[in-house]
Design a protein around this nucleic acid. Sequence first.
RNA 1: GAUUUCGUAGCUCAGCUGGUAGAGCACAUCACUUUUAAUGAUGGGGUCUUGGGUUCGAAUCCCAACGGAAUCACCA
Length: 503
Amino acid sequence: MSLSEQEIIRREKLAHLQSIGIDPYPAPSYPVSHYSEDAKKQYTDNNNEAFDVVVAGRIMSINDKGKVFFIKIQDAKGIIQCYIKRDEICPEEDNKVLFDEVVKKSDLGDIIGVKGYMFTTKTGEISIHSKEVSLLSKSLKPLPVVKRDEEGNVFDEVTDPEFRYRQRYADLVINPHVRETFAKRTKLMNSIRTYLNDMGALEVDTPVLQSIPGGAAARPFVTHHNALDIPLYLRIANELYLKRLVVGGFDFVYEFSRNFRNEGMDRTHNPEFTVLEFYVAYKDYIWMMETTEQLLEKVAMATNNKTLLTVGDNEIEFKAPYKRISIYDAIKEHTGIDVSEMDEAGLRAVCKQLNIHVEASSGKGKLIDGIFGEKCEKHYIQPTFIIDYPVEMSPLTKKHRSKAGLVERFELMINGKEIANAYTELNDPIDQRARFEEQAKLMERGDDEAMFIDYDFLRALEYGMPPTSGIGFGIDRLTMLMTNETSIQDVLFFPQMRPENRD
RNA sequence: GAUUUCGUAGCUCAGCUGGUAGAGCACAUCACUUUUAAUGAUGGGGUCUUGGGUUCGAAUCCCAACGGAAUCACCA
């Protein structure tokens, strides 16, 4: 490992501190009394009346004036300036160690604690008049701290995505908007929890390691359990487990499920991603559409305090209700072709005509999905429910109450992307078995994303599952909408990256 | 996986048609006891991602590898 000049200097400082008896990594608790922003607020709320504070944080800027330092430290809530005067923190002339060794030699990135009182500087910045300074953790690696002027303009912002994603810890320290994005993500999830809990839902945990990777059509990650000597799969969905719980008598269950799919990565796909699924007994997909609208309106309010949001170049209105259109009508609208009566050969011809790439193994469902994905999806910027899918592409969905060949399913499209997928759940065990067998045939044809037959799930259905509606929300994509981020990597703390080569 | 494109100091970036590296911030030393992207002076820091090749000479041209990004394929 070769060190840069700055890193060598910091290590020398570290050794020097230790040699004069200052522990650069002290163990005892530090008696923090305020967060930066709270201290400032309390100060202004009390007509700028001084009071004692103890604050700790990371040094983000140092202004060395010789016998006086202005040091800005950043804590969990913000940044506050500390005014440090040599004669005040070291009143005795023969004891200037604290100032000369700790303050003067501090570096950007060091974590320090400051005791003092609130006051306003000559230039009007609310600051801490320091009486005591302690080094709490020495930073050995130069942090690429960016400078900001009074208007908040950033100079030489660190934008290199590789740096930001690989060293998210540094990204979070230096880019405040990144912290805001992730705080919003948590707010979003909390608002959903609150909404569902208030409706009486039960949050549950189901297996991540599954012996049959069911509930969706995707390539799974495979692993091996040594003691049982069997293959296990990381879940691609939790759907079938939540339905088992509905069979068991839990009428309304939900889970934020980390799912894993062994497929390509791009701006909207990461190998592991989060889906909120919930299942409600005695409801259908009509009810679920209404619930979804209400939920998203609440999420928009919770994260942005409004429902009309700017997402990229678009203004998107999250206020309920949302438009509904059947998938066949959507295809007709955007291609002029009515595919509703077509068989597989006819659909294949349409795909060829529209220049859509399809696999030889694809069945009717995948072909229709392909046409929709290629020609329609991108047009749905405002929240739109695409409803009433053909039965072939929805093996877990109940047949439509009145339209032959269709199922009661909707996908919610927003900003040209699928955000949610919901069904009136198939609870007829005989039909479910037949659908699984259809999938098995597709698998034999070479469709490596066709579903496995889950006999235990069939057994559960045979005991009887109440009529139920269920939905899955792409939480990462929803977060992207709510935070106006264009890459999934910007809403995941640690997006998947190729490992670094280390010598 | 395919194509395109990028990879120069801790960070942001210059570096023309090949002549052995520059700036700002950061860093070091000094000055300054209320500064605001503080200021002034001086100084240090780079096997130009890696490995080959062409050339008298390569950060620059060519090939390959590694890493990032975008587009496509697969998918959510």
